[in-house]
Design a protein around this nucleic acid. Structure first.
Lengths: 251, 251
DNA sequence: CGTACCTTTGACGGCTGTCAAAGGAAGTGG
DNA sequence: CCACTTCCTTTGACAGCCGTCAAAGGTACG
């Protein structure tokens, strides 16, 4: 198993077991690897859709600029994630994508996706699963934005992010890396800096968590989970029916 | 061209030109066709994911129940739409799906999607495009929910829905069918009935639009478009790069 | 003709945004 | 190594959009 060393394999390998051929195809996508400084742009709004990126290390994000000068962060992307799937089937990007930290990313042409579709049902299905997980996070975020308070939303995002990090490598729950500023947290969740700050101060006073500059410290795990009423099904890697059917079909 | 008579063909045929074989496969999915009364359930939350539905006529919607008894409508689905794509790669449904009007739907096993993936690159790519359009609507709705007023959100939803209807059959802009109650509008947009009502009353006073029980009457098209600052790119059917590449590859 | 659903209206309160300003932390260049 | 700039965090006052609660008037369907 090369799962430990290949970012994309440990992502797409979560949903199905992949053949050696599939695995080497994925490894091929990781050849063209660049190291990026913080804030470097992967693409800009209105650019033609041409490239996809696999994050090897570091964090990235995609955002939209609003008319009034605000921006809204749509995706927060971690190592193993494919950046650009959202816009894949559109002619032009609607978002801009940037690194959120320094890191390394692999670049490949979006046409390779057609090769995947043409070449491997298992990979295609995995890709669908990855897209669906990303969509599910967005759905959840929308529901949170509409029905829950700033406090709930912040807690939810922190738990969700922790769970995602934990899938990459076991992460200490009580202390984990989170490179977003308060302003960015606001841009993800649709809150003003001022209100994010007030809410974080309140969470700290209540002994639930502390946001330090580059990491989160969880003080009361239980209250965090119960008060958010967190249900992580939408992050699940399972895909019973379809995976099974594909296996039978190939046998 | 059978585009006029097959709901699914006129949907998935938008993004790519499909071979005769692809077209007949899609027609095969529409054989098992049922007529449904208003409010009938297609699936419920926690059900195993097993079936997909193509709406032949009528409207449907998917929703989630919140703890406090509220519900949130996630997708509003029109003829030609495939109901269930959101949950396709998950083991269990998180949403419930119901008819919003009476209508007819075709039912097929979610496994047919694997057959599509295995059998036709063009269909698979079309499917990806359809999923991306649905995701784009959701993204837009999230941005609206976070940054825009109730007034903006309502206007945006009405314009978006009109554009979708217009892709099915030319629809008079000044008067079109919209079977959602004010309560449901609220459940889609994350607003209370009371506030939806107040806002609609205001839009009527301002001479912009009138929501009648089952249809919308547009009074001032220009103000509706400009005030919403509507940018419909996210509904675009174009998919230049990939479609072209697939064509070349097959040639 | 009655019942259930949908729409409408009013009063009140709170969460969150806006405006404004200052204090820390970090990185840069001389 | 220090001065300077830039970015990030923190705090206060105030306002408004929208939710909550409550009740009544319309409309459709059996």
């Amino acid at each position: 198993m090369t799962q430990e060393v290949s970012a994309i394999l440990s992502n797409l390998g979560r949903y199905l077991s992949l053949s050696d051929q599939d695995q080497s195809f994925l490894l091929g996508l990781e050849k063209n690897c660049h190291s990026m400084v913080n804030k470097s742009v992967l693409w800009q709004a209105a650019d033609k859709v041409e490239k996809l990126y696999i994050i090897q290390s570091g964090w990235a994000y995609t955002y939209r600029d609003k008319l009034d000068g605000q921006r809204h962060i749509i995706d927060v992307l971690l190592p193993g994630d494919i950046v650009g799937l959202r816009d894949l089937t559109f002619a032009k990007h609607k978002t801009t994508a940037r690194m959120l930290t320094r890191g390394t990313v692999s670049v490949f042409s979006h046409k390779r996706i057609v090769d995947i579709i043409d070449g491997s049902s298992a990979l295609t299905l995995s890709l669908l699963a990855a897209i669906a997980r990303q969509e599910a996070m967005l759905t959840e975020r929308m529901l949170m934005a509409i029905h829950r308070s700033a406090r709930s939303r912040i807690m939810h995002f922190i738990v969700e992010t922790h769970i995602r990090l934990n899938k990459l490598h076991t992460t200490d729950f009580h202390q984990f890396y989170l490179p977003l500023t308060q302003a960015m947290l606001g841009e993800v969740l649709g809150l003003t800096i001022v209100h994010v700050n007030r809410t974080l101060a309140c969470l700290e006073r209540d002994g639930i968590l502390i946001k330090h500059r580059h990491h989160i410290e969880i003080l009361d795990e239980r209250r965090l989970i119960t008060e958010t009423d967190f249900d992580g099904d939408y992050l699940s890697d399972e895909m019973d029916g379809l995976a099974e059917y594909l296996r039978q079909m190939k046998a």
